[in-house]
Design a binder for these strands. Sequence first.
DNA 1: GTCTATATGTTGATAGAC
DNA 2: GTCTATCAACATATAGAC
Lengths: 220, 220
Amino acid sequence: MVKRTRRRAVRPTHDERTEQRILEAAHAVFVRRGTAGARMQEIAQEAAVNQALLHYYFRSKERLAEAVFRRAAGELLPRVIDVLGSDAALEEKVARVVELELDHLLRAPFLPGYLISELHHHPERVPQLISAITGLAPGDISSKVFVKLRAQIAGRVEARTMRAITPDQFVVNLLALCVFPFAARPMLMALLGIDREGFERFIERRRAELTPFFLKALRP
Amino acid sequence: MVKRTRRRAVRPTHDERTEQRILEAAHAVFVRRGTAGARMQEIAQEAAVNQALLHYYFRSKERLAEAVFRRAAGELLPRVIDVLGSDAALEEKVARVVELELDHLLRAPFLPGYLISELHHHPERVPQLISAITGLAPGDISSKVFVKLRAQIAGRVEARTMRAITPDQFVVNLLALCVFPFAARPMLMALLGIDREGFERFIERRRAELTPFFLKALRP
DNA sequence: GTCTATATGTTGATAGAC
DNA sequence: GTCTATCAACATATAGAC
């Protein structure tokens, strides 16, 4: 009888912990340097392994970059989509998205810059982004969230408590107000003359002001 | 008497037209690939000159990248700063910034993605950004615009026609709503299931809605 | 000023020992 | 699985002819 350890292991010769260490090191380096600027040597060093091991686990720089991108892409939007597609009231959704995004981005302030840069220079990543968010086709994501939002907005408009706005403009405005400060962080820090700490205070103030700002914008 | 053509020419052996052609080719390539991903060969090809000529005009890839960045950086903010620092009424300023930005970005939709990517991966460019906007120190830019805005907002608040907001949050919100859709363009196009043309229609709708949206957000 | 040809240095990737 | 040593392929930059 053939000796075997775990049945599920598609790649039985890969150490889960090492793979994870490499992935996290790669994440750090790719986020900091961009895919084109990243060096396999720097990743190996940051993971405290040899450069050859990177290829043993991920075959090529491109595949490693893709793995990192998928992981990062799956981190930003899914929870937002969940909230926006939920049954919560519209005002509640706005408040929760603001809270969710600012909380998360304060802990990963470089994520927007990395994702924007990556999608800008590697359009081939766009489908990977979609599949990282969900297994559905692009249209299906939209429909689920947008149909829901459209109905809720229509209800508010009919009740004269809100002006009309298309669901896509609604979502883009909300994301813009949350995400842009992080995407433009280096520029803003220079323009406002603040350091990392000052930036965090700036975001903390937004946390309280953004929801009222957004909701009042939609009053009739 | 020594023959000389133009007294002002610091680099008399440089053809102005060729330099400009190289600069524009470099702009195209750097914007499309990013500094790290750009290849001197591709730039030379796009400028229809030899690769050696690039070094003759700009000495190194790094210097060429810097020249391109400065040019691009000087294109986005200065006019916005002029408007925000002007004597126009607050509501007028918002409308003009929206108009200005959307108009410009529709013609250069990749600019935000490039600038964000560049500043993200090359923090050493931040001072270059500042000096590209104006020769002043960081603090001076802020003060000129922000002092003016602060006074105007205070006036509106006193007249009970506007809620209180700090000038920096005011500016960041305005920029976010204008610039973010372009920075996140590839993502949005996928998420909304639209093509280039659909994106332009999306922006055209924003042109009309953004100013009211923003101003109503600040009503008391 | 603009070209061809080439030097010089990196970088991703592989071979093979342990 | 993890390492050392090395290859082959660029990419930047320069030398030198025209």
